[in-house]
């Protein structure tokens, strides 16, 4: 029997390292299966749209509120430093660079990792421990396509859109503060804001948001799909979805920015 051939107490490196590499292997397999299933019919269009609504529309108010406050507060806190050098006219450019190049994809992804990632982990985890996923399987429905592919696609599509909203509303928040202090017009503010922004900056932000969205969906689905041990397992799936997603988002942020800067330097 398999158990007799591979005793549990014999590890190639160590228990933890073996476990780490085994989970990397499983993750790669999971992602590979996603790409295999995503192009194979039948397509679950209605479920994808439902998930887009869940991920996008239901997070929109939170994203907009956070964006407005971020823009407003960032402007308020930057003003004293800039006014020391008599450079308050640079405020729109500074805020635009900070929000559009860094904060919009990153903060949107972090909020969604908490709100959407935990939701996916808990929902799939709960379905797993109550045999609902197996019930789909025996009723000749592909649960991976219905549950996993639809959720990963939804986060990958909706997080860039939410990041776009974050950028717009964040700049509006900044404009409100600038207008209250300097009575700057709407047109003048946005003209100044976009002076230092290049089209390539948008590309990088969009790529970041897509990668973050894919990460949140994938991690949430993996954690939910492998949940065991009843309600404790569901809680653990929700928690680890958030923690792992955030950790990966920070790593991806550093990598993408490094690569983008290297490409620009060529």
């Amino acid at each position: 029997m398999a158990g007799a051939e591979f005793p549990k107490d014999k590890y190639i490196l160590s228990r933890r390292l073996d476990g780490f590499f085994a989970s990397l292997y499983r993750m790669a397999g999971f992602i590979g299966r996603f790409f295999k299933e995503v192009f194979r019919p039948p397509f679950e269009f209605s479920e994808i749209i439902r998930q887009c609504y869940e991920v996008g529309y239901k997070s929109l108010s939170l994203i907009c509120m956070t964006a407005f406050i971020t823009g407003l507060v960032f402007t308020k806190q930057s003003r004293p430093s800039l006014s020391e050098f008599g450079a308050t006219s640079w405020l729109p450019s500074l805020v635009a660079i900070a929000i559009l190049k860094a904060l919009a994809p990153l903060v949107t992804a972090l909020i969604c990792a908490g709100k959407v990632g935990s939701n996916i982990g808990a929902e799939l985890g709960s379905m797993k421990v109550t045999e609902q996923i197996e019930a789909m399987e025996v009723s000749a429905t592909n649960p991976f396509k219905f549950l996993v592919v639809s959720r990963i696609l939804a986060t990958t599509i909706m997080i860039p859109i939410l990041a776009f909203f974050f950028g717009g509303i964040g700049l509006f928040g900044s404009y409100v503060d600038v207008h209250l202090h300097e009575n700057t017009s709407f047109a003048l503010f946005f003209e100044a804001a976009f002076q230092k922004i290049q089209f390539a900056d948008f590309y990088v932000s969009i790529v970041k948001a897509i990668v973050f969205g894919f990460t949140i969906g994938t991690v949430g689905c993996i954690q939910g799909y492998k949940a065991t041990k009843g309600t404790m397992g569901v809680g653990r799936a929700a928690n680890s979805s958030v923690v792992i997603s955030m950790f990966l988002i920070f790593i991806e942020e550093v990598l993408i920015v490094t690569v983008a800067n290297a490409i620009r330097a060529i």
Binding site: E123, T130, Q132, A135, V138
Partner: peptide
């Protein structure tokens, strides 16, 4: 094949 689960496994959403 019809499979009736011990927990019923109804989709609760």
């Amino acid at each position: 094949i019809g499979f009736s689960f011990q927990s019923s496994a109804l989709y609760d959403s």
